[in-house]
């Protein structure tokens, strides 16, 4: 699968862009948090597309954002 780039993303309609990012992020986030992946993605999709693209390319930033969101979700659940 080709890497998702800013130019590919920019050629898609706005609502489609989040879908594309979510589809790419899903397997990566599922590998970190299988149970919360769907909720983590719905939360991170609120972030700017440029940052989401960065997360796809940088495991460190992906992990740190996932940790942040998991903390929020668990806090919300508690």
């Amino acid at each position: 699968q080709e890497p998702l780039t800013a130019s590919i993303l920019a050629s898609a309609p706005c609502e489609e862009q989040k879908q594309m990012l979510g589809e790419r992020l899903f397997p990566l986030i599922q590998a970190i948090h299988p149970e919360l992946a769907g909720k983590i993605i719905s939360t991170v999709l609120e972030i700017d597309n440029s940052e989401l693209l960065h997360m796809l390319q940088s495991p460190e930033s992906l992990h740190s954002k996932v940790d942040e969101v998991v903390a929020v979700l668990q806090d919300h659940k508690a």
């Binding site: 589809e23 909720k39 939360t43 609120e46």
Partner: peptide
């Protein structure tokens, strides 16, 4: 208490409509 359903879950292949009220 009961489990909270927020936020909605993203599923691959299912069109994502954002976090606005469903």
């Amino acid at each position: 208490g009961s489990s909270i359903n927020w936020p909605p879950e993203f599923h691959p292949g299912v069109p994502w409509k954002g976090l606005q009220n469903i």
